[in-house]
């Protein structure tokens, strides 16, 4: 912002206007004297021409003034003040989806929701990792939302079993066993860039936590890793079929892991509930981040510059009309 430019420029324009309009002593020095001028100026034709001329002159004057004012405004570099929640757009989200057959519909919903959310992302980074017995990073953290949306759409089609898309899930079964949740979560957690960036990290983990096989890391260990790396895990569990408050039930384990990392646990009754839950996750995330709202000044020269362009055009037309 250089507001001081505005009074300075206005004063300069005022002085220039005064100098131009000051009644000059030698105004008629190069003109020739004529009598009975009113015989010409009282003609209706002359009056009409004079009115036209004055109209264009007024247009030119206004356009000139607008041009000056708007360029002056633009030169003063106007800014818009936005209050933003800095952390809101400063997040990294990794979707960590269990690709086992039982999860397809929930996964499809999750990727669908994020495909839509990605449209509104500004600065967030999103990544997608799918796992069964092996974890595959479909795409790493990126802010290329178009690419992310394409990939998420592909993922949705694959999860929905659309013909010809099964190749998407290739490679997730190459390990021993299936649904190695701990390994999958650990892969997701390690897919964040190393070091402590000033960005919040969260993993949306969709799994039913039915492990069959021998994972390298247990869910517990993976959750510990997440906590260590300041990654919050939001667990979505379709079909919470826990039987009693036993801490070894899959749902309870998942809840414990999520809460250990500082995240939250959501049980899905049906896949259609996913959008609501994702919103809840977003909201939790927002409150958890709790960054103080900050005023951010962004330059907004668009309006004055557009106005300057417009008045420049009008001025050009008017001066073309006014040419002697």
């Amino acid at each position: 912002m250089s507001w001081w430019l505005v009074p300075l420029g206005a004063a300069t324009a005022g002085v220039a206007a005064w100098a131009a309009l000051r009644p000059g002593r030698r105004n008629n020095a190069r003109r020739r004297p004529a009598a009975h001028v009113e015989r010409l100026t009282q003609l209706p034709e002359y009056q009409a021409a004079l009115r036209r001329y004055r109209r264009w002159l007024a247009v030119a004057t206004i356009a000139c003034g607008t041009l000056l004012a708007s360029t002056l405004l633009a030169a003063a570099r106007p800014v818009g003040i936005d209050t933003i929640n800095p952390e809101q757009h400063n997040r990294d989200i990794v979707l960590c989806l269990d690709a086992s057959g039982s999860m397809s519909s929930a996964d499809a919903e999750v990727v669908d929701v994020f495909a839509r959310l990605a449209a509104d992302f500004k600065g967030e980074r999103i990544g997608l990792t799918i796992f069964d017995s092996t974890a595959i990073q479909v795409f790493p953290l990126t802010d290329d939302y178009e690419y992310a949306r394409d990939q998420l759409t592909l993922a949705r089609d694959a999860f929905n079993g659309k013909p010809g898309t099964s190749g998407f899930l290739d490679g997730t079964w190459s390990g021993r066993g299936s649904s190695l949740i701990g390994d999958g979560l650990a892969s997701c957690v390690t897919s964040f860039p190393p070091g402590r960036e000033q960005r919040s990290r969260s993993v949306v983990l969709a799994t039913d936590n039915f492990v069959s096989g021998d994972p390298i890391m247990t869910l517990q260990e993976a959750a510990g890793l997440a906590k260590e790396r300041a990654v919050r895990v939001y667990a979505l569990h379709p079909g919470d079929l826990d039987y009693g408050p036993d801490a070894h039930q899959p749902g309870a384990q998942l809840r414990a892991a999520a809460e250990l990392s500082g995240g939250a646990y959501h049980a899905l009754d049906n896949p259609e509930a996913v959008p609501g839950i994702v919103q809840a996750v977003q909201a939790t995330e927002a409150t958890a981040l709790g960054g103080a709202p900050r005023a951010v000044a962004t330059e907004v020269p668009d309006l004055p510059l557009a106005l300057a362009l417009l008045s420049g055009l009008v001025l050009a037309i008017a001066s073309w009309r006014l040419r002697p």
Binding site: R31, L40, Y46
Partner: peptide, 18 residues
């Protein structure tokens, strides 16, 4: 380029010549 001897006002020549 004319001016009026009556009130010293200049005459807009390009209008007069239209």
């Amino acid at each position: 380029r004319w001016y009026s001897v009556h009130d010293a006002s200049p005459l807009l020549g390009h209008l007069a010549g239209a």
